[in-house]
């Protein structure tokens, strides 16, 4: 093996700054896209369980349309295909204000929203129907029963798969490099290009993703314990078996 390791490329020159900027952009695009995805997912996932047929169809259409097209295609679609359809002033404004960032947000948001939607739907479907009936039989409207009972319970139940999906969203934000978003993977590629040290650059990127995702997974697992519903199977009770 003749490869000469040179880890100092990571802190010489601008590398450190690039990695930091990349991390910040990854976090920014992930957080904004997560809010979009989570909102779309919770709402459409809940709607898919109600008895109002047109709404249910609309939500099903959203899920099937947006989850069955590759994320990369969505990136290209929202960045290259959609802006030319917009009015000229809006186009100009977008391209002055990071159009690639917003296209990436929309692509990640709608794609993961569709996936969150299924997580939410399965969470709601694991709640006995009679609990909903008990809620509405006290006079709560359907919307109140969902807002006060069904969704809060489902949110607690779906923490593990929702964490999984959130981590996927962060990792998938790297696809946004294809439309020029200068996120973490984009920056590691840049370091590699400037220094020709692929192993060092990609190792740095790998570790940063790993630490970021592990930190989130740990936080979520704390949340899961904090919000565990008494009487449900949780980690704390496994000793009884």
């Amino acid at each position: 093996m003749t490869y000469n390791f040179d880890w100092s490329v990571l802190w010489r020159g601008q590398s450190g700054l690039w990695l930091l900027q990349g991390l910040v952009t990854t976090i920014e695009i992930s957080v904004v896209a997560w809010v979009v995805a989570f909102t779309l997912g919770i709402f459409s996932g809940a709607v898919r369980t109600v008895s109002i047929t047109p709404l249910r169809w609309l939500a099903s259409f959203y899920v099937e349309f947006f989850r069955n097209v590759p994320l990369l295609v969505w990136m290209f679609f929202w960045y290259f295909a959609v802006p030319p359809l917009l009015p000229q002033p809006l186009q100009d404004w977008l391209f002055d204000h990071g159009a690639e960032f917003w296209a990436g947000v929309v692509a990640l948001g709608v794609y993961h929203g569709a996936r969150f939607s299924e997580v939410m739907r399965s969470g709601i479907q694991s709640i006995p129907k009679t609990l909903f009936e008990a809620a509405v039989s006290t006079g709560l409207t359907m919307a109140q029963a969902y807002r006060l009972i069904i969704i809060p319970i489902a949110l607690r139940l779906i923490i593990p798969p929702a964490t999984n999906e959130s981590l996927n969203l962060i990792k998938n934000s790297s696809v946004a490099l294809t439309i020029g978003v200068a996120e973490l993977t984009f920056q590691t590629r840049q370091i590699e290009t400037y220094t020709a040290k692929a192993f060092e650059a990609l190792t740095a990127g790998t570790l940063i993703y790993l630490v970021l995702c592990l930190a989130i997974a740990t936080t979520m697992s704390q949340l899961e314990k904090r919000f565990a519903i008494p009487g449900m199977i949780t980690k704390r009770q496994t000793g009884e078996f």
Binding site: P128, T130, L131, E133, A134, A135, I149, P152, I153, R156, I229, P230, G231, M232
Partner: peptide, 9 residues
């Protein structure tokens, strides 16, 4: 109801 259906949370 038969199954109580209290809000568990």
């Amino acid at each position: 109801f038969q199954s109580f259906n209290l809000y568990p949370h």
